[in-house]
Nucleic acid binder design. Sequence first.
DNA 1: CCGTATCCAAGGTGATACTG
DNA 2: CAGTATCACCTTGGATACGG
Lengths: 136, 136
Amino acid sequence: MGHGVEPVVSGVFPADILNQDCPSRGVLRHLTDRWTPMIVTVLADGRRARFTELRRAIEGVSPKVLTETLRSMERDGLVGREVTPSIPPRVDYWLTELGASTVAPLAALREWAEQHVSVVEQNRERYDGSAASLGG
Amino acid sequence: MGHGVEPVVSGVFPADILNQDCPSRGVLRHLTDRWTPMIVTVLADGRRARFTELRRAIEGVSPKVLTETLRSMERDGLVGREVTPSIPPRVDYWLTELGASTVAPLAALREWAEQHVSVVEQNRERYDGSAASLGG
DNA sequence: CCGTATCCAAGGTGATACTG
DNA sequence: CAGTATCACCTTGGATACGG
């Protein structure tokens, strides 16, 4: 907690995230980048993986974006990176302790998504249906 | 669980999210839209809020984007919306039961971000520093 | 008050070819 | 193998003015 002490809505004391200038907004945003949760999923439980293993495990990611995401995660201290200068070269990635601490929260979110897909899709159909019948 | 049974990386059995075509990707993405976690934060604990209250509570959000985000959350069944056709009009938002089930996972993520901002920032400085000294 | 309409900037993301 | 370089898209998000 942090920057304000005034309630914004009755009974709501501002989480830092609600504060315009709080850098936690950027951190959260980063943590929820398109491929970050998937990388964390693959590297959970102390697993190491090479670049191509990650690329294969995470369907649809391009090498460019995977590199960018891994770099920024490395920069933030979420993943470690080890280069073995052999031929062919070998690079391994793993979660640091800090990165490992994101596994539980990210897994919870991922599981929520996986478990509620069908309900959400039903809700969408129902909503779109009502909208259509309003128009007709 | 779902679509595949083959391990992608040794010991890694694919979560649905890793599957290219799994709609849970879209759901997760949506759940982590820029303003969704903040809306959920404000509406947690069964609180209701009017449009303008949300807008004030969530610093920096524009009316257009707030509307869009609320609409899509309503479409997915995460928030309820009640219009009171008075003058001036009054519209209330709240979390549905489904929406309320996202509070815990989203709060965990938000708290992670709020609690680790400084560490992440330190890591970034260190990383950028090493990069600079490599160049010089 | 609660939005919508319009226009616009930014950058996240992607496809692909190429290099050490 | 492990990326980088390049180009382009196109969605997300923002500023602002206006309408019911």
